[in-house]
Simulated assay, not measured.
Amino acid sequence: MRPELNPGLRWGYVTTNVAALAEGPSQPKPNPDPPAPEEAVLVLNTAWQRDLDWGTFLFMTMVTGSRRGEMCALHWADINLDRLELVVKHSNDGRRIKDTKTHQRRKQAIDVITRSVLAATEPAPGSAARLSAVNSPATPSFSSGKPTAPPG
């Protein structure tokens, strides 16, 4: 109602936009329910059996804790296997590449196991491939707002 009452305030019909004084209902606090370690292992093993890239994408998402848009915008150039770090610079909202939610770049350390997983799927040197080619049928699709498994 606030936008509808603003012209009346500008034109002098009312002295206060009462809708601007109202408070919206409180939002419930998030209550995430991450998978148990056994469930995570089952998900990863199934994903890796179906497609190496899909399994790697899920593994990196679980290991880094990055948001899905950040993972979809990650490029191989953002990962330094020698220094054991990756840099999160951008996010992908399904339509365009944009800043991260916090508008800040961040470096994340990766361990030697993660390096081994990434080294097994790294493209040829000089390739500008993205870690997750969103439009590829072998990688996840977030068009519905939720990740979906690749066909196959």
Results as ranks from 00 to 15, higher is better:
I110S: 08
N135K: 01
S144R: 12
E38D: 15
P150K: 03
E70R: 03
V41Y: 11
M71W: 01
A149I: 00
T61N: 03
A129Q: 13
A73L: 10
P7L: 04
E70M: 05
A47C: 00
D78G: 00
A138I: 14
S141M: 00
M1S: 10
L118H: 02
T139C: 05
G94P: 07
Q27K: 15
L118G: 03
T15C: 10
R105L: 09
I113Y: 11
R2S: 07
R105E: 14
L44F: 03
N80Y: 06
K29T: 09
A138G: 12
R115V: 11
L9G: 04
S143P: 05
R130D: 08
D82Q: 09
A47E: 03
W11D: 13
Q104P: 04
A40F: 07
E38I: 07
M62T: 01
A133M: 10
E38Y: 02
M60L: 15
R95I: 10
A73K: 03
N31G: 13
P150D: 02
Q104K: 15
R10H: 09
L21N: 08
Y13C: 07
Y13P: 00
R115H: 14
A109D: 10
L5F: 02
Q108W: 02
V117R: 05
W54E: 01
D99L: 13
L131I: 14
L52A: 12
Q27I: 10
N6R: 07
W11Y: 12
D51V: 07
S143E: 11
L52V: 14
L42V: 11
P123L: 05
T46S: 07
G8S: 15
T61L: 02
T139E: 00
L44D: 00
R106W: 08
P37Y: 10
T15S: 15
V63L: 01
P25F: 13
M71Q: 04
K101Y: 06
S127W: 09
Q49Y: 08
P140C: 07
E4F: 15
N6L: 09
G8L: 14
I79P: 08
L44W: 00
L21F: 04
R10G: 13
L44P: 04
P125D: 07
K29R: 15
E39D: 15
A40R: 01
T102P: 06
L84G: 02
L118I: 02
T148W: 01
M1E: 09
T46I: 00
D51T: 05
A129P: 09
G24F: 05
D53L: 09
A22N: 05
R50L: 14
P34A: 12
Q49G: 01
A19H: 14
L9T: 03
I113V: 13
A73R: 07
T15H: 12
V117A: 03
D82L: 11
L5E: 02
V88S: 02
W48D: 07
G94T: 09
